[in-house]
Write a protein that binds this DNA or RNA. Structure first.
Lengths: 234, 234
DNA sequence: GAGTGGTCTAGACCACACT
DNA sequence: GTGTGGTCTAGACCACTCC
């Protein structure tokens, strides 16, 4: 059973936002509340989420208005597979390496485990429509995902973690830096040596902010960019 | 006069969050409501904002808990000056160029003006504690900021726009790509030619999503990284 | 002045965690 | 079972925009 505000949010989006030009006025909150047969607070909750998603803006005393289709949606956390599919391409992977090892000081700090604990590390070449896009190395505490190396590692690790191990990723901290591909990396990515590349390191965490996965990805700069919306204040 | 939930949010943060270790339980919502002498809904509004800021998490049936100091704060839109100051350094600028020109097709599209309209373009070398960090080119519709070139351009343009022209920036779309500094750029940044660099293009918009400023910045990769938190779902 | 979104109250019931 | 956070209602007043 969905919450009412959740259904109302989707209804408002379908009826008054999607496909509309910018600065179109929505019905007033009181009108919407009456139309949906709910309290105004419930409508406000729905509108607040749509505002957070960058789909509308509200001006006190004036009304609620559409933002319009030109604006990119705010950044959501998604796996490589999900992201590639969202762009209408087919994701695939080649496993370059998969092993278990002791965490060591660096990984121990990243995953909040002790340095002697066993971790599982998977390195994959990730492709979109068969074209190499990035080299990605993911590390997990082995205790969190026993037997991971025996599974099919060609798809979404996020999906695997959630479905098979009940590990839900809630947020991630990302750091983006510029670099160049070294000899081995450029060979795997199919680009000349010293080609510009984006390095993205990410720590994925569950709802309680416990780190679940740490990954380092090297993206071809000619095929990939990081795009997002930031808000001032709020 | 601040809203109550705003004061309560700050009070809760000071008393129960800042300086606390992770997973510390906060008082219940009903306890907080009574302590502050307000309704539970008001406390919930305050807690919701702290949750959005990544300072606490809530588990239905269990309670509200601190996230702890290790986690970086979620990304906010800020100007170069604000950002450098937040990192405890002193921002400064050298104006490399300031001119007015016709928008042309590309700028016209970025700022939603007609190609023949006059725009103001300012290029600056931006420094932190006297060390070159990036080359930044900002473009505005001249009609929005008449006489801008006669002002002091060494500080925050965001502050100038807000204080002198009443232009409030609400959000921005950013695109981050990897590149290398060409000869002129590397000379200005004080690095060898073909050094890795981050290119960040940004379109800043007012609350109604009208583009106000478009900027292109080239950051030294050895001195700068983009760091942010992304959420899944929500 | 009329109408809008912004804030706040008082109270209720539900879903879930913990014991 | 008890207590927690999650949702929702009914109603009020305030701050602001627009005419």
């Amino acid at each position: 059973m969905n919450a009412k505000y959740s259904d109302i949010r989707d209804s408002i989006r379908l009826r008054f936002i999607d496909g509309k030009p910018a600065d179109e006025a929505l019905p007033t909150e009181r009108t919407l509340a009456e139309a949906f047969g709910v309290n105004r607070a419930t409508v406000r909750r729905a509108l607040a989420e749509l505002e957070d998603d960058g789909l509308l803006y509200r001006i006190q005393g004036a009304g609620t208005f559409t933002i319009g289709p030109a604006v990119a949606k705010s950044l959501k956390l998604s796996s490589f597979s999900e992201e590639v599919r969202r762009r209408g391409m087919q994701p695939s992977s080649v496993v370059l390496g998969a092993l278990t090892r002791r965490a060591g000081t660096q990984t121990a700090r990243q995953l909040h485990v002790s340095p002697g604990e066993e971790v599982t590390e998977i390195t994959r070449l990730r492709m979109a429509d068969g074209e190499p896009m990035c080299i990605e190395t993911s590390v997990f505490a082995s205790a969190n995902a026993p037997g991971l190396l025996e599974r099919d590692l060609s798809g979404s690790l996020y999906a695997l973690l959630e479905q098979d191990y009940g590990l839900r990723i809630a947020r991630a901290e990302q750091v983006v830096t510029a670099t160049v591909a070294d000899e081995a990396e450029s060979r795997q990515l199919g680009v000349p040596v010293l080609t510009p590349a984006l390095r993205i390191t990410r720590t994925s965490m569950d709802p309680r902010s416990r780190p679940i996965e740490h990954s380092t990805s090297l993206y071809r700069a000619d095929r990939y960019e990081v795009r997002f919306t930031v808000r001032r204040d709020g």
